[in-house]
Amino acid sequence: MKSCRRLFLGVLLACCVAWLFPPQAAAEPPEAQPSPRYPARIVTLAPSLTEIVYALDRGELLVGASTYSDFPAVAKSLPRVGSYARPDLERIVALRPDCCLAVAGMTPPEAISRLQDLGVAVHVLDTASLEAVLASILKIGRLLDASDRAASLVGDMRQTIERVARERDNGPRPAVLYQIGFAPMHAACRGTFINELLELAGGRNVCAAMQGYPQLTNEQAVAFRPEVILIPTMGTDAFDAAKAQWNAWPEVPAVRQGRIFFLDSDLFDRPGPRLTQGLEELVRLLRQPPTPAAGKQP
């Protein structure tokens, strides 16, 4: 009888303990961290950046772009926010962007600082060299959740660069002047991505001893005795005037041999996805033989 009573009391005590101290539920795994928030509203402060965003198939995120953002054609319909040198901060803020994309050395630092003070995130991209351009495309890809597309695009561009370098003639390199503007005249020199393109295409930059985009006097330009003169788009009238000016110096090899060429500036002056198209165009032009008709575009 006593043993039964002890058994009953033991069971009753166990039930009380279980009721008072229920077993702890197994710890739930930590919640997955939310994925990074990608911007949904973007303003680009240079045409090259507009082209990059579209090349990454993220054009639907654009709510504004700088003046002259005209490629692809759909970009022409975007609201304008001023030029890369003079962005319209009031218009930018009115578009309520999640972020702006800017170019180091082009977008004024004071404009960047002011936008940041107004609560607009600004991502500044380096485009001073070919490698920097490729790295900036990858960076924008990460920012816009388009890393795979960016890697594919950069891979294609690298393949073109490597092919051109592999097929380059090891013979003499023609002396090239890349002329920017007419009055005054500037040139693309050492430390620029255009200089890299010229060298990759098989040319020798006549002003490689100079840095950046210096202004040249007519006397300096003639003294370089370029064998090829490349003039990016300045409008037909301006190009004709520049060519007429060069024709006044028939002792310059490029004038005598008819190797003054008019370029589509968008392929060269916009450090973006179409730079490799510009590279292939340079290869074509530098391989053009001399012609008796001075300054004639092939």
Rank of each mutant, 00 (worst) to 15 (best):
F8M: 15
L9K: 02
L9A: 07
G10C: 11
V11Y: 07
L12Y: 06
A14P: 06
C16E: 04
V17R: 05
V17M: 07
A18G: 13
W19V: 11
P23Y: 03
P23A: 09
P23L: 05
A25Y: 07
A27Y: 07
E28L: 12
E31V: 06
E31P: 08
I42A: 00
T44Y: 07
T44H: 06
L45G: 08
P47Q: 01
T50W: 01
I52V: 15
V53E: 03
Y54K: 00
D57C: 09
D57P: 03
L61C: 02
S66E: 02
P72F: 12
K76P: 02
P87S: 01
R91Y: 04
A94R: 05
L95H: 01
P97L: 00
P97C: 01
P97M: 00
D98A: 00
C99D: 00
C100L: 04
A102T: 03
A104N: 07
T107R: 01
E110S: 14
I112N: 03
I112H: 02
R114K: 11
V122K: 00
V122G: 00
V122M: 00
V124M: 05
A132D: 11
R142N: 11
L144S: 02
A150R: 04
A150V: 05
G155Q: 05
D156K: 10
Q159E: 15
I161Q: 14
E162T: 13
R163M: 10
A165N: 14
V176H: 03
L177D: 01
Y178A: 00
Y178C: 01
F182Q: 08
A183S: 09
M185V: 10
G191M: 06
T192W: 09
E196C: 04
L197K: 07
L200C: 12
R204P: 08
N205R: 03
Q211K: 14
P214A: 05
A223I: 14
F224A: 08
P226D: 03
E227G: 11
V228L: 11
I231H: 12
A238K: 08
D240M: 05
Q245G: 11
R256A: 15
Q257C: 07
I260Y: 04
L263R: 06
S265D: 15
D266K: 12
L267P: 00
F268S: 01
D269G: 10
P271E: 09
G272Q: 01
L275F: 10
L279I: 12
L282E: 02
R284S: 09
R287K: 12
Q288G: 06
P290Y: 01
A293T: 10
K296N: 05
Q297R: 13
